[in-house]
Design a protein around this nucleic acid. Structure first.
Lengths: 182, 182
DNA sequence: TAGTTTGTACAGAAAAAACTGTACAAACAA
DNA sequence: TTGTTTGTACAGTTTTTTCTGTACAAACTA
């Protein structure tokens, strides 16, 4: 096998692994392949570059590059004299992980917290009323307990996201750089 | 609105929010609804209970309860005299989060690490060979740099999963219990 | 033993998601 | 101004996923 092919194969293996795992980021394998391709491409790429490289429609490239941008895996680049939009992979993967974590979970926490708060208020009202059956009251109280547990849980999750965003997580789990040894 | 309905509505709101967010766990909204329903159901449920409660086929209940078990959101229960399989929601949501995190990311890290290691070895072989073009050598060296970066990154991710599994994350972000105050 | 009950494999139907080609607006060039 | 180029909205097609009903094996009952 010639050298160029071996290089290509080494790249493809990693790109395909990214494609098969990017569902953890809520993205499709196609978007993952696009991301992987961009990672090994030294220069920022245009939508047309991607169309050519991946053999897919420009429309697809446009939509998935936006999906990648939304989770901050890809960013706009600029190069003088180039009129087309340019995109490149965000260079700090640790930060990308934190951003992803934050984007995904913060939203979820917010939605849950709202729902739980509203339901909790309603049930706390309910049990106060004098003319409800004893049976219902017991059930409502059990639910209130559960909702308080959820409230605490989502509060924890929120603080967890804080810890990621504030870079505190890197104190607990430091980044090591293996190339320092060389 | 009568009391029972108000209770029901308060539950439904939370269940639906869970359903809409459970994609973060790689599960479908249906599975999320099932999970939510089980959470507010005080007794462990059988597949037939779920079929009735959710108005879906027993086959669906069977497959999604397995999906929920796989990520440890649901576990088998036992009650004397009941022949049907019983399931209930795992009661420690913090642990569930940790388990999910671990299951999902550990697998991803392992796959990536393997791919990166193999490709790295191949490229390190490649650049050693004397009869390859200078151009190719430069490209391969650039890729090697990138792969080393990935190796470090996945090593960090692996240690991050360790920190979750070893409960160290709870030192950084402690669980608070709001009901203690009352 | 034979007769139920229970859970799931499997094939097909229904629903959802991904992808493409066309069309067009916005930005730029001349 | 008119003529290009570029990115994306949108409708329709293809592919994938989810859901259902049937069939059947394993476990239990009598």
């Amino acid at each position: 096998m010639v050298g160029k092919e071996r290089l290509e194969k080494a790249r493809e293996r990693v790109i395909e692994t990214i494609a098969q795992n990017i569902h953890l980021y809520g993205l499709t394998p196609s978007a993952g392949r696009q991301f992987g391709t961009m990672y090994f491409h030294d220069e920022p790429m245009t939508l047309d570059d991607m169309t050519e490289e991946l053999g897919m429609s420009k429309t697809s490239m446009s939509t998935s590059v936006r999906a990648l941008s939304n989770v901050k895996l890809v960013e706009r680049a600029w190069k003088r004299g180039v009129r087309k939009d340019l995109y490149q992979v965000t260079d700090d993967w640790y930060q990308s992980f934190v951003d992803l974590f934050s984007i995904k979970w913060r939203r979820s926490v917010s939605l849950h917290t709202n729902a739980v708060r509203r339901s909790l208020t309603e049930l706390e009202e309910l049990v106060k009323e004098p003319d409800i059956s004893e049976e219902l009251k017991i059930e409502a109280k059990a639910d209130i307990e559960k909702l308080r547990y959820l409230r605490d849980y989502y509060d924890w999750l929120d603080r967890l996201v804080d810890a990621f965003e504030d870079q505190e997580i890197f104190n607990l789990v430091p980044i090591k750089n293996s190339s320092i040894d060389k």
